[in-house]
Design a protein around this nucleic acid. Structure first.
Length: 562
RNA sequence: GCCUCCGUAGCUCAGCGGAUAGAGCACCGGCCUCCGGAGCCGGGGGCGUGGGUUCGAGUCCCGCCGGGGGCACCA
């Protein structure tokens, strides 16, 4: 349910509440005045049902011991309508539909143009500090599409939270301490020695992708054979460190191409090096939720809803990955965040209960941390499944995809679907059908408006100033439909932010673009009628603005030409 | 076996407990003397299944069926 937070919703809700109170005090309704709720305002699905509707009569029918329609009639009879409401009507089983006056839409257009880039922002968060952690793929190879699905998603979510009044930081957590990194080092080392014609055996479960050979080639170009004759331990350590940095830099380059920038790159190793893990264990021990068993240190996560306890420290004294994650959680909280959002891939699914347990083990309320799991992206080439394992060799990297489809199509395609829906990304299809991709449909609407505006300016059209133009002329059905779509933007931002569902924005963008294209087919902007053309000029200007703001939230360009 | 996500049009997916369930693709048929045809208009077709909650269920709860993912002192 959409929270009643928009000014227009609050105003209408207040009107209906006042009407109910008057109906009760006049005896028209038999209700306890204290039982009158704040009427909820929602969008009717059908345009014929007006701009807003309240179901309050259906909700109150039982308490009022009257049929819903009778409650609605009594309420409406006691309504005092402001001039910006054109009318209300009781409909269906007892809904009260509200039709806004044309002057409300005229004010909307002026509000869009006055607010500009900030149209659609609304302060719900009151500066709440939110950390959004996403991707966090281990730097053992290039980013692949599975991980990269979360790049536009996390970035757009961060944009949405910023737009709704939160103070947001984007964070990437990378594992630079584990055996996977050592495997990477060993793999690159073997490839490097191989290039030099030295005997070298690639680790059996090492990484085999072409990028390993590429990295080895770069290393050779950089260092020649200088590393070959080092002490094996030092050579391994130096190559591992070099390879890890190389991979991390590659990931950052890829993310830069995607238009994603992180505020914080967090190294797992620092948790080990600074003693944070040991401190975390101590703190949890002090809270009485840790137990020593079989030489290992366990967090009693079962006490907090997990199905089995989890070790923080192995019996050999080394921290587990989970131990590091507990320390990482503690670190984020100590940095002062009010809320932590984790966007994880499907493979981390089983990890959620134990991390929830960590939240509770620290005595934090559940809603401090949100864990969102994205379903898989399966990559398909010409109908054939493509392997995505970094170890398997045949990987399709995000860079490859970006070369083929570009940043905007990539981001938009990944953002069109709910996190809960698996995506089948057919490279062939996205490439071949790129002209039919919805992203172009939306961008085309923006470019088309820009073209109209250029045309007008180029031919010397000079609209009346927006405050003088008669926006009441915008009464054509296509104009009315377009105004309705514009009016929906703010609630779309609220809903998308509140539900952590950026994909709603792409659907909205398509609706808005469609409303514009239909308008465009029926209504000429530049005509001999100066008053009408002026009104339409500001209408398409505000449409362009809202399209641009929507695309900005999802990180897609709004082109003037294409 | 346990946990979890999903099941809506031929395909890919939207759908905030509300009224007559939508879009794109595909298919068929129309629309450029006029601001960009990357567009517009029309057509056919759908909520896996059985209960429950509710004034009202595609939406919430339980079962069943079907599919994806996850189950480590791995990372």
């Amino acid at each position: 349910m959409t929270a009643t937070v928009l000014p227009v919703q609050r105003d209408l809700s207040g009107l209906f509440r006042a009407a109910l109170e008057r109906a009760v005090s006049s005896g028209a309704l038999a209700l306890d005045p204290a039982a009158i709720p704040d009427p909820a305002l929602e969008r009717p699905r059908l345009p014929e049902h007006g701009d807003w509707a309240t179901n309050v009569a259906l909700v109150l029918a039982k308490a009022a011991k009257a049929p819903p329609r009778a409650v609605a009639e009594a309420m409406v009879a006691h309504l005092e309508l402001p001039d910006w409401v054109a009318g209300v009507e009781v409909a269906g089983p007892g809904f009260v539909n509200v039709r806004l006056d044309q002057m409300w839409f005229a004010a909307l257009v002026r509000r869009v143009l006055a607010a500009g880039e900030s149209f659609g922002t609304i302060d719900l968060g009151h500066g709440e500090r939110v950390n959004v952690e996403f991707i966090s793929a281990n730097p053992t190879g290039p980013l692949h599409v599975g991980n990269a699905r979360l790049a536009p998603m996390g970035d757009a979510l961060a944009n949405l939270l910023t737009a709704t009044g939160h103070k947001v930081e984007r964070e990437y957590y990378f594992n630079d301490a584990g055996s996977q990194i050592e495997q990477l080092g060993a793999s690159v080392e073997a490839a490097y020695l191989g290039l030099l014609g030295r005997p070298a055996e690639a680790p059996a479960d090492g990484y085999k992708g072409a990028y390993v050979a590429d990295a080895a080639g770069e290393l050779q170009a950089e260092q020649g054979d200088a590393l070959a004759d080092l002490d094996p331990d030092e050579r391994r350590a130096r190559i591992t460190d070099w390879a890890f940095r190389r991979m991390l830099a590659g990931i950052r380059e890829t993310l830069a191409r995607l238009g994603v920038e992180f505020d914080v790159w967090f190294s797992e190793r620092t948790l080990h090096d600074t003693g944070a893990i040991a401190e975390t264990v101590d703190e949890l021990r002090a809270r009485g939720v840790v137990e020593d068993r079989d030489g290992a240190v366990w967090l009693r996560t079962t006490q907090f809803g997990d199905d089995k306890d989890r070790p923080l420290i192995r019996s050999n004294g080394a921290p587990t990955y989970f131990g590091a994650d507990a320390a990482y959680y503690r670190d984020k909280r100590r940095r002062g965040f009010d809320r932590l959002i984790f966007l994880w891939g499907a493979d981390h699914h089983g990890y959620v209960p134990r991390m929830r347990a960590v939240v509770r083990a620290f005595g934090d309320p559940d809603d401090v941390a949100e864990f969102h799991i994205s379903q898989l992206v399966s990559l398909v080439r010409a109908g054939q499944p493509a392997k995505m394992s970094k170890r398997a060799g045949d990987i399709a990297t995000v860079d490859d995809l970006l070369d083929e489809v570009g940043k905007d199509a990539f981001r938009y395609t990944m953002l069109r679907f709910s996190l809960d829906a698996p995506i089948e990304f057919d490279v062939e299809a996205v490439t071949r059908q790129s002209l039919d991709n919805p992203v172009y449909y939306v961008q085309y609407a923006h470019a088309r408006i820009a073209s109209v505006l250029r045309q007008g300016t180029g031919t010397g059209f000079s609209p009346l100033p927006v405050d003088e133009a008669d926006l009441g002329l915008l009464t054509h059905p296509m104009e009315a439909a377009l105004l309705r779509r514009l009016a929906a933007f703010e609630e779309q931002v609220l809903t998308a932010a509140g539900q952590r569902a950026p994909h709603r924005l792409t659907r909205y963008a398509e609706d808005l673009a469609a409303a514009f294209h239909r308008f465009y087919g029926e209504c000429r902007v530049l005509t001999d009628d100066h008053a009408l053309s002026s009104a339409r000029w500001w209408l398409v200007n505000s449409t362009k603005r809202v399209l641009a703001n929507t695309l900005a939230l999802i990180g897609v360009d709004a082109p003037e030409r294409m």
